[in-house]
Design a protein around this nucleic acid. Structure first.
Lengths: 158, 158
DNA sequence: GGTCCGGTACTCGGATATACGATGTCCGAGTGCTATGGG
DNA sequence: CCCATAGCACTCGGACATCGTATATCCGAGTACCGGACC
């Protein structure tokens, strides 16, 4: 799995805590974790294309959440970065070679079916957890976190 | 996900149908689907290292299932090829940069926790399905499949 | 005829190339702010 | 003092390098079979 997913979720969390009053530039989001700014920007673009963030150009521009954190699931974020296609790609090798029965059977590939079943369980679990859920979990462990984030983004000039 | 997983599962299915009386060379398993023999061999080696297959060198050598198909889960095969580590690797970026609170908090990374939860659902689903299950599903759709496989592996000289 | 032995062909196993996608970087287009000059 | 306007700095967006891993290939080590020679 892409490392960008981790960056994206963390950034969404921060954006949730910062509220959507102001837009936050990619460079600043990157600075918070000392990530390569240009590359994080690429991931944020993907989130914007997926409708999870809105982007604004020019001074005072940047990114902000396109909808409330309760409406953004982990599945949304992962799909935006990793793509919608399933991880297991069935290439139908059962129809290759002289082994094939000749009939392009309409029966589905059972292996594909089984893998998909597992992947759906994964997707369902991801879809059941929102950015808001994670945010509140973090706050449960350290209630100061949101305030500390806001402070950092306000103070730091970089 | 690795393409080798698809090859490995298909090969395990064929080995299940062929029984473990005789060993089957990688070249023959590859020929069945016209796959690159040397590369499939690599995947089979991984299965052997994981204890799913046993390998025999020399003439009349090859691979065979190390235990009955009911005892081999999809999880076993996927883990053998893809590795045991989780797909989502948490690099703890929350502890990078001036953003860190300084305390290497003992609280787990919530994002990591959420991703792991989804991944466990995936693993659980994979672990619940065995090679035998898939074999019997295929037989349900086309009862001639096992016999056709045995025939091909008996007849073909390549 | 039976048994031992050397040669041979076969198979796995790992070391070695190659291609493609993830990772990382850079520059151009667009946009809002700001300062300056005129009314 | 207020407004128009030109310049500028900032930001995204996508085009361009670089690196690592999955993919693919090749050759060496070991082993069982087969044929022949010897007892």
């Amino acid at each position: 799995m892409n490392e960008g997913v981790e960056w994206a979720v963390h950034s969404c969390l921060n954006l949730a805590w910062l509220g959507d009053e102001r837009a936050v530039p990619a460079a600043k989001l990157a600075g918070f974790y000392e990530l390569p700014a240009a590359y994080l920007n690429k991931q944020l673009q993907a989130l914007a294309r997926a409708g999870i963030l809105t982007s604004t150009s020019g001074p005072r521009g940047g990114f902000r959440l396109a909808r409330p954190p309760e409406k953004i699931t982990l599945m949304d974020v992962v799909a935006a970065i990793e793509g919608e296609e399933e991880a297991f790609r069935c290439t139908e090798i059962r129809h290759r070679g002289g082994s094939d029965s000749g009939v392009r059977s309409k029966t589905p590939c059972e292996i594909h079916t089984s893998m998909r079943k597992a992947e759906l369980a994964w997707r369902r679990e991801l879809a059941s957890q929102t950015i808001a859920d994670i945010a509140s979990s973090v706050e449960g462990h350290s209630s100061a976190a949101p305030e500390r984030v806001r402070r950092w983004f306000d103070d730091t000039r970089t």
